[in-house]
Design a protein around this nucleic acid. Structure first.
Length: 417
RNA sequence: GUGGAUAUAGUUCAGGUGGCAAGAACGCCAGAUUGUGGCUCUGGAGGUCGUGGGUUCAAGUCCCACUAUCCACCCCA
């Protein structure tokens, strides 16, 4: 146990971390182009935020949160989701009083007590984007296009964008009634889970995977046929924007997000290559959330993207992320006097912008050269008594093996050319 | 929470019906004449065979329990 990471957590070792850095940098860069600024919120929140934000009936709240009392007896919950904390900060700091919309992004760990499997962890990482204050469908479309742009820039083009509208409290209530009446007729054909869903949240019967349930729901009334004018117009608008950008998408009335706060737009981006947990990105509109959390009545849209799942998808599609380059220069030394000289020379060159490595393992000269090769150094020099005396070194190009004699003072210039 | 599979060197894996002083490949380290890498060759280090019980003259190999990992359900990113 002592030397084992807790269940559902993963170390990111140097052999992987460069991939994380690559995709995270790309996320930040894209957000910059879209004018979304980073927000960082705490790793934990007051439990009530998630109760209120995510919804008390959701699985996340009922059985997946890491909740504990701190030493003063406050109920604390590790960040279970990204949107509510962003909303909380938006309200707490009065950002709603500034010019709108407020466009935010974050890259953060998320904690949920789940049973680990492919693409599902207890600590996972999300890239999230939120836009507060904009009710226009162009905001929904912009948020979706951030996700799509990221995927495209990574070379991923076989993921599926699925969209739906889950309506507003008014039309959803209406639809719920219709759906419930329909399901009531077929209650005996549904699986046991769905009999419970029928009571708690009938919408979720729609995405049940059990064959018999699918047969029933195939005939079920669709929410998209029951939207109120406002919701239907919004959905049509969104599709117009998506069409204009040339995105392929599927309207999937079965999409039901597991968080209570969604209204109107709900969408998912799905990979078929990473096992049963294929939702790489999920999001939607939440026009009631900010008010629900104690803020002004303001709309919002956003998404969360699972970084682990994104990386899995890249791997499954054979997309290679560029490996970090080796050092510009490896300086090998012979003898203690040369080591001291080498050490300070390396430091100076690094300060001036070269990536320089030296040996710390008392290696022989030959072993230092092997090491330089292994590190993928571009150039190498050897410094011993002769070089200390003459102030000259042979700069070796490790790719070609070619050596040129130059002054030690000329190393920086020679490599930079 | 339910179900299935698996657990042998740093890594990926071999080890029919119980008899190993436990192997391979890759990786790691060191050498192949004197101050220079990549290829090749030689040698070396490294394993409580997940943990704890049990059966047996004898268990990595059979039985039980526990733990962990993987996969699926559920749910979600």
């Amino acid at each position: 146990m002592l030397t084992k990471a807790p269940r559902g957590t993963k170390d990111v070792l140097p052999s992987e971390s460069y991939k994380w850095q690559y995709v995270e940098n790309l996320m930040r860069e894209i957000c910059e182009f879209y004018g979304y600024k980073e927000i960082r919120t705490p790793g934990f929140e007051h439990t009530e935020l998630f109760l209120r934000g995510v919804g008390e009936s959701t699985d996340i709240v009922r059985k997946e949160m890491y909740t504990f009392n701190d030493r003063s007896g406050r109920s604390i919950t590790l960040k279970a989701e990204g949107t509510s904390p962003a909303v909380r900060a938006f309200i707490e700091h009065g950002l709603y009083a500034e010019t709108q919309p407020t466009k935010l992004y974050y890259i953060t760990p998320v904690y949920r007590y789940e049973k680990p499997q492919a693409g599902r962890l207890r600590e996972h990482h999300q890239f999230g984007v939120e836009i507060f204050g904009a009710k226009s469908a162009s905001a929904d479309a912009e948020v979706i296009s951030i996700a799509m742009t990221l995927l495209k820039k990574l070379g991923l083009n076989n993921l599926e964008l699925r969209i739906n509208s889950v309506g507003c409290p008014v039309c959803r209530k209406n639809y719920n009634k219709v759906l419930k009446e329909f399901l009531k007729e077929h209650l005996d054909e549904l699986c046991d889970d769905c009999k419970v869903r029928y009571e708690v949240n009938p919408l979720r019967v729609l995405d049940c995977k059990v064959e018999s349930c699918r047969r029933v729901t195939g005939e079920a009334p669709l929410i998209t046929d029951y939207l109120c004018d406002d919701c239907r117009n919004h959905f049509e608008e969104l599709k117009k924007y998506l069409d204009a950008m040339g995105y392929d998408y599927i309207v999937d009335p079965r999409i039901v997000r597991g968080l209570d706060y969604y209204t109107k737009t709900a969408f998912e981006i799905i990979s078929k290559d990473i096992g049963a947990q294929g939702t790489v990105c999920g999001g939607g509109r939440y026009d009631g959330l900010i008010e629900e959390c104690g803020g002004p009545s303001m709309p919002g849209v956003g998404f969360g993207m699972g970084i682990e799942r994104l990386l899995l998808t890249l791997e499954q599609n054979g997309i290679e992320i560029p490996k970090p380059e080796g050092p510009d220069l490896f300086i090998a030394y012979i003898g203690d006097e040369a080591k001291l000289f080498t050490f300070t020379l390396a430091n100076k060159l690094r300060f001036n912008g070269l990536k320089v490595e030296i040996d710390h393992m008392e290696r022989s000269l030959k072993a230092q050269m092997k090491y330089a090769n292994k590190l993928n150094a571009k150039f190498a020099v050897v410094i011993g008594e002769e070089e200390l005396e003459s102030k000259k070194v042979k700069l070796k190009n490790m790719a070609t093996g070619e050596e040129t004699e130059i002054l030690i003072d000329e190393i920086e210039k020679a490599i930079k050319n």
